[in-house]
Amino acid sequence: MTTQIHEATPVPAVASTTTPQAPAARRVVRPIPMTRLVGVELRKMFDTRAGFWMMASVGIVSVLATAAVIIWAPDEAITQNTFSTAIGMPLSVVLPIIAILSVTGEYSQRTGLTTYTLVPWRGRVMAAKVASTLLVGVVAMVVALGVGALGNVVGSAITGLDATWDISLAQFGNIVLANVLGMLMGFMLGVLFRSSAGAIVGYFVYSLVLPVAFGTLAAFQEWFRDLQPWVDVNFAVTRLFDQTMTTEYWQQLGVSTLVWLWIPLAIGLRAVLRAEVK
């Protein structure tokens, strides 16, 4: 028996000398799929208090706006369109900020140091951020549509009138597009500034200062009036919400977003890909 014990003892010794070599052996390392990166970016949007409340605000804003319409709107105005406008306005402010923070968080909180080390292809990280941001945007709008529809049903029941469903699928599509463009604007400002404060200030200049400036210019300068739809991106985008788009409107949307969105987005992305991460 004792000899057996003696024979048995070398076994752990052998094991302990072989295990140290184990990490040195090359494992099969699989590439990181894009879906995983999108999942990670979605997670990062929700996992801080600020991020969580940002997302929660989408739902809260929808409910508050719906309640406000039911309480204050005159009976004949209780239509789906009223609800969608009431919800859409605050939503179009919140969604671009979500887009901004998804990019600038990496720089303001310096998490980019880890993110770009684990995924050293920044183009893929950016693509995952765009995808997750747009996913959140579309889901938020579907939620808003649902809440608005519910409000329409409840509101109509209170007024005793038949519910008015006056939003076509095409119209909803346009609203989604307008918000997607808004989020891409936020994203563009994020990659351009790479700082939360800078990008949010930039966003308010974009959405509050520029429209007023262009509007004033158009009001006082004859020559600018016809030009405005081509250069004022907010003017061009806002028409998606409330008008039937004509071919010319689409062209104006294309031209104004080229200048105010696509070109700066390209410049910002180039900067993100090249800039040193500290």
Binding site: R27, V29, R30, P31, I32, D47, T48, R49, A50, G51, G105, Q109, R110, T111, G112, L113, T114, T117, L118, V119, P120, W121
Partner: peptide, 24 residues
């Protein structure tokens, strides 16, 4: 480094312990 398909499994990196999201 950029040729590594999943760098985290091959190279462990700590560049700045303060560069973590304060809210997580």
């Amino acid at each position: 480094y950029r040729e590594l398909v999943n760098p985290g499994l091959e190279v462990g990196v700590l560049l700045d312990a303060s560069a973590q999201h304060a809210g997580r």
